[in-house]
């Protein structure tokens, strides 16, 4: 049976590296199944479970958002370590600029809201992964 090289990395560690006959993940436009020989594809990775099948063996990993790169013989998951949102980037940027200008304003409340929202999304995705894991048992 042909296999595809799978690597899942997050910014703080390598999560998985190995072979798989079939890989399932949640892309930014929905669930995708990746078989060996898949056409080159670049897509976003939504927070959620990533399943790697190798013959009868199946492993499930949790990934927070990031990117998926697919080549015919390899698939790479670039997962972010932490929850993020565009608006959070913005708030952080403002913070850095303000520090440079030496006048810090209190942006805490806004920041907290987006952070909480992102954390909620990730928590939900985590629960989904756990549920999926339980079902398989």
């Amino acid at each position: 049976m042909s296999t595809i090289k799978v690597s899942i990395v997050s910014s703080s560690e390598e999560i998985y590296s190995g072979e798989g006959t079939m890989v399932f993940a949640t892309g930014s436009l929905g669930e995708i199944g990746i078989a060996p020989g898949h056409t080159p594809l670049l897509t976003g990775l939504a927070p959620g479970p990533v399943r790697v099948q190798n013959g009868d063996d199946e492993k499930t990993f949790f990934c927070s958002g990031g990117f998926i790169e697919i080549q015919p013989d390899l698939v790479t998951f670039l997962s972010d370590r932490a929850e993020r949102a565009e608006s959070m980037d913005e708030a952080e940027a403002i913070k850095a600029q303000e520090l440079a200008e030496k006048n810090m304003h209190d942006k805490e409340s806004e920041l907290d809201y987006t952070k909480a929202a992102a954390q909620l999304a990730e928590a939900a995705a985590r629960i989904k992964t756990i549920q999926k894991l339980r079902k398989n048992k």
Partner: peptide, 15 residues
């Protein structure tokens, strides 16, 4: 070339 989902610009920008 890749197939981009959703848009090439958006994805590459992020990446």
């Amino acid at each position: 070339d890749y197939i981009y989902e959703p848009e090439a610009q958006e994805l590459l920008e992020g990446l």
